[in-house]
Write a protein that binds this DNA or RNA. Structure first.
Lengths: 236, 236
DNA sequence: ACCTTCATGACAGCATTATGACAGGGGCGA
DNA sequence: TCGCCCCTGTCATAATGCTGTCATGAAGGT
């Protein structure tokens, strides 16, 4: 599994710096944002695994951002840890109500922060990883680690399984071969771009008996996409 | 990508001059305006990529202009950086509320100004690149990298997609073939001017089943335009 | 009418993607 | 430990789809 990516949202550079170093030491990848606005953009764009969110932010407050994230299906599952100053501690109920998974009071030890993060990630990623995805009858069961259609198993290799798992959790979105390599094979893996094509073919072949290969669409000049909406309509 | 065009709005020629030189050195194209009135005209007419806006202006104040721009859909997305004198610094909240993306306090170093501008442009252009555009039911989804009408995909080649993407993000404006080549094909590409005609035809053909080919209008003697308003009125 | 500027259909060449085959690597059971 | 079998990453090659140009007909302007 790739390293977890944490987004640190705080308007004070000093805090971001401190937390950032601590997180990197603990083997997380760190993203930063200094405003709620930017944070939201990066969340939508880069899908971090967890958000460290300062309570007080200019313009969009942390709590407001948390509410927005919970309201949108696409981001509702994102775990959030609130950072609050001691004086604001009373508000923690509000924070938890807004959807925070945990909260940490400043000043905090980095050790404590890290362990909280790991705890939250353990909880949520276990939950997320166990959620079975289903699209029009095509079912991916992370627990059983297999694909089924009407309870009948679909046979495919491990790589095809991971590829499909990635696609099913990021539908309706085009990915370049390079992005797929990063996401499915893992970063820093040297594999030929065109190898993707072969695995795509294997995946399609595995899904073809049920016609689900139509979900795996080629985006010419760019890469591939998983979509339930019909792809190219070859004119007769 | 073409150079970014920055509109500098300030009533003091000295400031405009200084900022202008700095921006040009940093490889931006510079437009100027000395009143809110004129600024608004140039914005509507020339669509700069970012606005540097002085807080204090005669007649229409900077903050008032910012509000107006945010109120109008056509200009709401335009990033604004406010310039404020130190004594006005307290008002920065007002500025941010009025929709400014950032603010810089005078006196400022040109280095700081440039880096702020770049930061804002990075943010907004990244966000803009992901925003789905829709015009009367015709939808362009940059993330999924495709065009849809009522959730039904519209089939077209990569070049037609890029061409439409450019048109949809620059509507109601005529472009010469040369400009289109620069923008859509990229600079330093040698292609016959008339090739555009062919791609325009392909794009129209792709859109025709839904009648959206009416948006792609010929501007005789000049080039083409994307417009929702009906094109040429052929006299009966 | 005459001269321009566009629209279209046809093409050949080029580019990108699909497919089938294959050799090496590893894991697992005998 | 040895084989056997499944997986993987790469190639070479076939199959499609795109592109840029032309030649020709249509439309617009004067």
């Amino acid at each position: 599994m790739a390293r977890h990516r944490i987004l640190v949202v705080d308007d004070e550079p000093a805090i971001r710096e401190m937390v950032g170093v601590a997180l990197e030491t603990a083997d997380f990848d760190v993203l930063e944002a200094d405003t709620g606005q930017l944070a939201h953009e990066r969340i939508v764009d880069e899908r971090p695994d967890l958000i460290l969110l300062d309570w007080m932010l200019p313009a969009i407050s942390g709590i407001e951002l948390a509410r927005r994230l919970k309201r949108d299906d696409a981001t509702a599952e994102l775990p959030i840890i609130m950072l609050t100053a001691r004086s604001e501690e009373d508000n923690r109920v509000q924070g938890l109500e807004a959807g925070a998974d945990d909260y940490v009071v400043k000043p905090f030890s980095t050790r404590e922060l890290i362990s909280r993060i790991k705890a939250v990630l353990r909880r949520t990623s276990a939950a997320a990883a166990e959620k079975t995805l289903e699209v029009e009858g095509l079912r991916l069961d992370p627990v059983g680690h297999r694909i089924t259609v009407e309870d009948e198993p679909v046979d495919m290799g491990p790589t095809e399984y991971r590829l499909l798992a990635f696609f099913m959790s990021h539908p309706e979105r085009a990915y370049s071969r390079e992005q797929l390599l990063d996401q499915v094979w893992g970063a820093n893996v040297y594999v030929e771009d065109r190898t993707i094509d072969v695995h795509i073919r294997r995946l399609r072949k595995a899904l073809a008996p049920w016609g689900y290969d139509r979900f795996i669409q080629t985006v010419r000049g760019t890469g591939y996409r998983f979509s339930t909406r019909s792809g190219r309509v070859t004119s007769a």
